[in-house]
Amino acid sequence: MNNFNYYIKAETPFLFLIDFHMKNFFISPLDQLKTNQIMFNFNGISNFHNKQIDKKVELISTPVDYETYLKSFNIVQNHLKLGNSYLVNLTFPTEIYTNFSFDEIFYKSKALYKLKFYDHFIFFSPETFIKIIDGFIYTYPMKGTIDASLWNAEERILKDEKELAEHITIVDLLRNDLNMISTDVTVTKFRFISKIKSNNKDLLQVSSEIKGKLPPDYKNNLAEIILKLLPAGSISGAPKRKTVEIIKEAEIYDRGFYTGIAGIFDGKNIDSCVIIRFIERIDDKLIYKSGGGITIYSDPEKEYMELINKIYVPTC
Rank of each mutant, 00 (worst) to 15 (best):
P93C: 09
N309M: 15
N89E: 09
S101C: 08
T259N: 05
F265Y: 12
P13Y: 05
D266S: 08
T98K: 04
N74K: 04
K228N: 08
S46Q: 12
I181Y: 03
S85T: 14
K211A: 03
D266F: 15
F25C: 06
I193M: 14
T169Q: 06
D147C: 05
I168K: 03
K248L: 15
G292A: 00
L214E: 08
E306V: 11
Y297I: 07
Y288C: 07
D184Y: 14
I53A: 00
T62F: 14
V88M: 05
F26N: 03
T186R: 14
N41D: 15
K162T: 13
T188C: 08
T35N: 08
I133K: 15
M39W: 10
A10L: 04
I137H: 06
L173V: 07
L80A: 10
D283P: 00
Y7T: 07
M39S: 13
D134I: 08
I60S: 07
Y69K: 04
K219A: 09
S234L: 11
K189S: 09
V57Q: 04
L286V: 07
S198I: 11
V171G: 01
K131C: 06
E245K: 03
S85P: 05
N78H: 13
L173R: 02
H167A: 05
M180C: 05
N2M: 11
S28R: 01
N99V: 11
T295Q: 06
F40D: 04
